[in-house]
Amino acid sequence: MTPSKQTRLIEFLRDTLAVPADALALGLRRAEQAPNLLPMILWQYGFVDLEQLNQIFDWMEQV
């Protein structure tokens, strides 16, 4: 994932889905080696639900 796409994803997660900053920080640390896994990590830790996860994947397809 390119840095600008990752930045836009983080903005989407923060602004649209209201994922807390500390949840994003944890997800980013866990996804350091594979940034594309950030949505799955957030879901695994319960920071987003299944509907939000689908919204994230839809957003990622459109970007």
Rank of each mutant, 00 (worst) to 15 (best):
E61C: 05
F47N: 08
Q44Y: 09
L24G: 05
L37G: 05
M60T: 10
K5I: 10
L9G: 01
I10M: 06
R14M: 03
E51Q: 09
D15E: 14
R14T: 10
A18F: 15
G46F: 15
D22H: 15
M60K: 07
D58R: 03
Q62F: 04
M60E: 13
P39I: 00
I10W: 01
G27M: 03
T7N: 12
M60F: 14
A23M: 14
D22P: 04
A18H: 15
P3L: 03
D58K: 02
A25L: 12
D22S: 07
L24F: 15
W43Y: 13
V48P: 06
R8N: 06
E61N: 13
P35I: 04
A34M: 14
M1S: 09
W43H: 09
T16M: 06
A31E: 03
E32P: 02
K5G: 10
E51F: 15
M40C: 05
L37S: 12
G46K: 05
R29Y: 06
Q44M: 14
Q6T: 06
Q52K: 14
V19W: 03
L42C: 09
Q6D: 04
Q33M: 11
L17S: 02
P3T: 02
Q6L: 11
M1E: 12
V63M: 15
T16A: 04
A18C: 08
E61M: 04
F12H: 06
A31T: 01
P3G: 04
L24E: 04
F12G: 03
Q55C: 04
M40R: 09
Y45F: 14
T16R: 11
F57S: 06
P20G: 07
A25W: 12
L37E: 07
V48N: 01
P35S: 00
Q44L: 08
A18L: 15
R14K: 06
W59D: 05
W43F: 10
W59T: 03
T16W: 05
F47Y: 12
L42Y: 02
N54C: 15
Q44H: 10
Q44N: 08
K5D: 07
R8T: 08
L53I: 13
R30K: 11
S4W: 14
P39E: 04
G46Q: 02
F47D: 06
R14Q: 05
G27E: 04
Q44T: 13
F57P: 01
V63L: 12
